[in-house]
Amino acid sequence: MSPVIETNGLVKRYGRFTAVDHVNLSVEKGEVFGLLGPNGSGKTTTILLLLGLTEPTEGEVRVNGLDPLRQPLAVKSRVGYLPDQVGFYDAMTARENLAYTARLAGLRGTDAAGRIITALSRVRLADVADKRVGTFSRGMRQRLGLAEVILKNADIAILDEPTGGLDPQATQELLELIGSLAHEGMTIVLSSHLLSMVQAVCHRVALFNRGRIGLTGRVSDLTSAVLGGAYEVEVEASGADVPAVLGGAEHVTGIAVAGPGLWRVDADADVRPQIARRIVEAGGALKNMSIRRTTLDEVYVRYFQETKNQQEKKDAEAA
């Protein structure tokens, strides 16, 4: 399978500030790809570069094999875009707003009208189609933005913070919609700073920090790569030297002190039976043990903490 979106050494500078720093992305057809990172880490700029709405300082972009700078109309007719905090013309109804977009996209007449109805009912806005958008809630606006992407019948949807500012229920609804679009074969690129939310829908993610991509890959691969394991066991015990006891155990990838008599054990499998046996065999008293899968948030925090520490170390050495 050939990638539908590909960037090669993409750089965008604003004056002396580098917003995007040598980003290499490759998104396969039918994939849900997440761009994750805190605000101001270069996600939106990368998206604008993908759409050709801003020019790269260096590097190149290919969308469906086309250059968004030289063939912008061809690219933009195949790509749907939902901007961060999408805006509509408040004085117009939902239907009129979509009709305007449809005309700009080159759809006319009854064909457009039919597709508008389909798109609106798909995002469950059909009953408010003739209400002014000014009366819409944040969640309804986001859904209307998604209806626009559906209306265009786009191959690729680029969604910038699609769940930003939504309540949990609206977020869930929107994610289900995105999931169903992906199921139908639409390639989806979405950006978010809410990592746990993205974990549920994304096949692969790229972690952004200060304009660079730190890590790319499947969520499960990233957790094991960064945290050394996909499981984290909290052990509360007394009367035994837990790090020493668990030192050579199978599957255990790391042990850290989490408090007095409390340890955090990273593992790439469920190792609770071994831990219990070893502590008891060593004569210790096991008081409590809990396990949970690690989330992307922890991967993110841990990974960039490490890079930050390395950076500080380097700076200190340099000084």
Binding site: L53, L73, A74, G87, F88
Partner: peptide, 14 residues
Amino acid sequence: NRRTLSRVLAQPIY
């Protein structure tokens, strides 16, 4: 200010 610009310019127009 209405945040409509990027949405409109993402349509196939210059």
